[in-house]
């Protein structure tokens, strides 16, 4: 059994580690420091932590001001409010100015679970990737989240990092080779390709196991970076396999599926099936129940591959 960890947990641990050596790091939160895991940093470095209260617009405006004064800022709240409520501030005060703010947004997608539809974000990747200059990251597990967060901190400019509430089995080891902008082929295959983003990677790998038993070889790519998108790995998949299934805990409109479809339409037309939230709101429930009900499990990926086979 693989080690389990939520990507937000990895974020909390990353901040504790980074804070020791990076005195320029300032962390902001909006009354969710216990949930987003910024609280541990706040305890150790209270002078470099600012709780902005339940004010997500000002959270990101203030983050911009600190960053434009030379700080590197991690500013956290739930993805719904970071990308949704504060969108236009993120666009104008962070995107347009290229401010060095890392928007570390937790509780993304349907696996936020019991809180229900008002808190289940399926739009954030779509919103964030339309902002010029915004790097958009969606790590699959704890170890890869750590690596991507470190690279995000070390690069200059705005980043959106999508993090989850639920614990997920770690796919990667501590020494995994992960780089922003480069998709990872985590399983070779020759018939079809699944391009997965975020915590859907486990489901994608499980789907590959199921199909293998039926003699279908599935390539599995972890597209942890939605922007800049790794076009090479997509072109290779389009050329070497018969079709692509995109998998995301996000709307099938505008996120990973949208990005891959835009790319392939221009460069390498290929059949694509889209697994994700099918243009509807969610509801309360346990994460596993919700993934099943809203069609984001290995079985749904298998079904999508079968559709491509027809």
């Amino acid at each position: 059994m693989a080690e389990k960890m939520a990507t937000r947990q990895a974020y909390g641990e990353f901040l504790l580690k980074e804070g020791k050596t990076n005195e320029n790091l300032v962390v902001l939160d909006a009354d969710l420091s216990k949930s987003t895991m910024t609280g541990a940093f706040a305890k150790v470095w209270p002078q470099r932590f600012f709780n902005m209260g339940i004010s997500e617009q000002n959270l990101y405006g203030t983050a911009a001001g600190l960053a434009l004064s030379g700080k590197v800022v991690c500013a956290s709240t739930f993805a719904m409010f970071a990308a949704g409520r504060a969108f236009e501030i993120v666009r104008n005060s962070i995107g347009y100015t290229g401010a060095n703010v890392k928007i570390c947004a937790t509780h993304a997608g349907i696996t936020v679970g019991e809180d229900g539809a008002s808190h289940q974000t399926f739009e954030d990747l779509a919103l964030m990737r339309t902002i010029p200059g915004m790097t958009v990251l969606n790590p699959a597990d704890g170890p890869s989240a750590m690596k991507l967060l470190k690279q995000a901190i070390d690069m200059n400019g705005p980043c959106y990092v999508r993090l989850g509430r639920a614990s997920v089995p770690s796919v990667y080891g501590k020494d995994a080779d992960i780089a922003i902008g480069r998709g990872n082929c985590v399983r070779e295959g020759k018939d079809y390709t699944v391009i997965s983003t975020g915590i859907m990677l486990n489901e994608a790998l499980r789907a590959a196991d199921i199909l293998e038993a039926d003699g279908i070889s599935l390539r599995v790519i972890d597209m942890h970076t939605i922007k800049p998108l790794d076009g090479d790995i997509i072109e290779k998949a389009a050329a070497e396999t018969k079709g692509i299934v995109t998998v995301e805990e996000h709307s099938v409109i505008g996120g990973l599926g949208g990005a891959v479809a835009e790319y392939t339409a221009k460069r390498c037309p290929v059949r694509i099936a889209f697994v994700g939230q099918q243009d509807c709101f969610g509801e309360s429930g346990k994460p596993d129940e919700l993934l099943k009900k809203y069609g984001m499990t290995a079985e749904d990926i298998v079904k999508a591959v079968r559709e491509l086979e027809k």
């Binding site: 203030t62 001001g65 434009l68």
Partner: peptide
């Protein structure tokens, strides 16, 4: 809002 961040910095 940005000014608040500048003042904190």
């Amino acid at each position: 809002s940005v000014s608040v961040g500048m003042a904190l910095a």
